[in-house]
Amino acid sequence: MIVGLLLLLAGLTAPPKTHTVEIRGMEFHPAVLTVAVGDTIVWINRDIVPHTATAKGQTRWDTGQLVQGQVWRYVARRAGAARYVCTFHPTMHGKVVIR
């Protein structure tokens, strides 16, 4: 029983994960990312041209300009969903879901 309780606690306190969104070929990969509260999301620009990942609507986060090879980290603090775009290239869209 004690062992079971410990396992349960271990499950509840699973360490946060890090997820990566690659920007390449003028697209976000993956375009839709689902993470848990506490997880970290890393955007990395693999393209020659600069990009941003900028949240739309009420959610406020913005990578700012990312040149080739540059990364930006965001810790998911609250549950919710946010769509985001590259402000330089408005045809590029992504979405983050935090559960």
């Binding site: 070929g25 003028m26 697209e27 393209d47 020659i48 041209v49 290239h89 408005p90 045809t91 590029m92």
Partner: peptide
């Protein structure tokens, strides 16, 4: 080849 998607994106942006 790597530059091509940027040109295609510029084209879509320009058309829009």
């Amino acid at each position: 080849v790597d530059v091509r998607p940027a040109i295609a994106t510029h084209l879509e942006h320009a058309k829009h």
